[in-house]
Amino acid sequence: MTTLSNLTHLDWLESEAIHILREVAGQCSNPVLLFSGGKDSLCLLRLAEKAFRPGRFPFPLLHIDTGHNYDEVIQFRDLRAKELNERLIVRSVEDSMKRGTVVLKTPDEPRNKHQSVTLLEAIAEFEFDCCIGGARRDEEKARAKERIMSFRDEFGQWDPKNQRPELWNLYNAKVHKGENIRAFPISNWTEMDVWQYIEREKLGLPSIYFAHKRPIVRRGGAIVPITPLTPKKDHEVVEEIMVRYRTVGDITCTAPVESIADSVEKIIIETASTTITERGATRLDDQTSDASMEQRKKEGYF
């Protein structure tokens, strides 16, 4: 038997997240957990284990696949779902393209924002009334005002002026048919908290989170990985350098950072001394305008 020792901020954050997950399970009739294989959603899975084991999760897992993912992330996603013996639903942006509900302007454009369409289609298909996601308030200023239980209308839209006041730890996840709630159990976590939790819980991660050698070009201050989807331009010089990803997402708009951190311990040290925000370093699409995340959320994005 364990006796109480020094409980840390991670224990508090964990306890809050478990409480939120259990509220979703208690209040919603058909929730789903969004799982991409990325570090934040891997934390969510560990929290769901702590919240519901030895029972099964009271929700399936859902991945909205852009078709622009690294293979190792997809393999990791499938492996983790299998290890947990939980149901994984995959819906892909490419199917939405075939249906004609996603229309690309150019064939190789980033598909992050198109995930919203596929997500809303999946919500309608399965009649989900709540999607649990791993978004954090520290990621971006449009997220700083996000509720833990965020209300979306029939069109999946986030209206910052039409959010429910959220007091104490009393959450209101009631919705009418067609509306839904996005629940964010790790709202109050920072990037550092996530890495410390990964270390403490010894969570496995896709290999691209750790330093590895990769061919890249330097384009407008960002490091762009060279892949079949993101070829080099004529004049560019390809270098092979040590990099790691701070976030994983659509290959065409997620950039790695230069790093030699090949373990969680080293990543924590690097995170503590970094001078660039997570999105600033890695998201090529958030930089297009000051408010691009806010815009995407209004359109139903996570």
Binding site: P160, D290, A291
Partner: peptide, 15 residues
């Protein structure tokens, strides 16, 4: 938020 800047008001609690 952009919506707040446009209207010159603060809508909500930020964390």
């Amino acid at each position: 938020l952009q919506a707040e800047r446009e209207q010159g008001i603060t809508i909500d609690v930020a964390y």
